[in-house]
Design a protein around this nucleic acid. Structure first.
Lengths: 202, 202
DNA sequence: AGTTATAAGTGAAAAAAATCACTAAAATCA
DNA sequence: TGATTTTAGTGATTTTTTTCACTTATAACT
């Protein structure tokens, strides 16, 4: 059975929430509380969880550790994954040092920029390279995820390089949409659009 | 007639795309091309646009300038809006200097942080203040949008302060969900979740 | 031990969203 | 000028998603 796309997104959020609850040593959580935490309804949470075949306990809710475990299994979130950031402007360097990624299972192992000056100026524990080395480094290190934080005009070119180097997924922070082969998992965070979507509801 | 939420989001994306096309002096655009640019189908684009009452031209498409104009009208995207960033860590300072916001109609007029050291260290043309001054500054300057980039544990408190100070909308980059009064437009960008949503589809 | 209250599970219904299929208009071409 | 092609507009249909309503289980309480 294939899981609807919205359900996958919500299950990822539930996974994140379970992580938080687990750290607080909370053992059980109800569909209602999960719903509040991820911004949906209890019905939807129950349907979503039932879709992956996990069952909870009457009057107690879902067992935090085991639900997280099973979600991790189904959603492929159990293994640490390697990622890289391309474009070391302000946003890129901020992402390079976003400590939470590592705790959450994403290991940023490389940064790339086209400017040699920038590469020399950055001091971080993560290796930084010239974009010229991107394809080599990404394929050598088996980096699975590419995060694009370059200006619009270079976004497509970088995406193509990442794909050639063998990444499975791309997260694009640049202000333009890019085209990638349909077997690449792709998504985009458009910061301006996030603000516009809010303002449009004022 | 009230416009569905998904439609609003897509119309915002279309608005962004029209902005790009306008700068290239492109006069007309088809529903098909818009669909490709924002990642949907031509049917959906036509339905969405018809919902706001704009009509296009047979065999030419939609007139870029006038569609953008009308979208701006309907979506409240015509006036420059004031925003502030709370939390001047790496991500917050990156957002503080994200030049594109200004071009796109969002004027970041203030930054806030709880650490005086951090405030003194930052050099940017934007005024930075202590969080203690948040409520005063936000209400004095009529800031409508608050962008939260503080650690989890302070996110709710900052949201409450922003709401008290009178913002209409909040964009939350912190790793936890927060609760705000339902008349506040709220959305969240969860960076870890963005990566997880990709990895879950591998 | 019996009662009550809470919370999952789930088929059915409703609502929402997307897609289709067709019409109409107009630009282009022969 | 007439045929053809492109593209919007839209009611109908289909699909998807969400919500509801009800059942069942069991923990907690009296």
């Amino acid at each position: 059975m294939n899981i609807p796309s919205n359900t996958i997104d919500r299950l990822c959020k539930i996974f994140g929430q379970l992580d938080i609850l687990g750290k607080k040593s909370i053992e059980f959580v109800s569909s209602k509380d999960l719903a509040i935490a991820i911004g949906t309804t209890e019905y939807t949470v129950r349907k979503d969880i039932s879709l992956i075949g996990v069952t909870g306990f009457t009057r107690k809710g879902y067992e935090v550790v085991s639900l997280k475990e099973q979600l991790g299994e189904k959603l492929n979130l159990k293994t640490q994954r390697k990622a890289c950031i391309v474009g070391l402007g302000r946003l890129g360097t901020a992402l390079l040092d976003y400590e939470k990624f590592k705790q959450d299972g994403f290991d940023i192992v490389a940064g790339f920029d086209s400017s040699i000056n920038k590469i020399e100026r950055i001091h971080t524990s993560i290796d930084v390279f010239s974009v010229a080395e991107l394809e080599n480094v990404v394929s050598q290190c088996n980096i699975e995820l590419g995060i694009i934080a370059v200006p619009s005009e270079h976004a497509q070119d970088i995406a193509d390089k990442l794909v050639r180097a063998g990444v499975k997924g791309i997260l694009n922070f640049s202000p333009v949409e890019i085209n990638v082969n349909e077997n690449i998992i792709y998504s985009r965070i458009d910061l301006t659009n996030a603000l516009r979507s809010i303002a449009a509801r004022f």
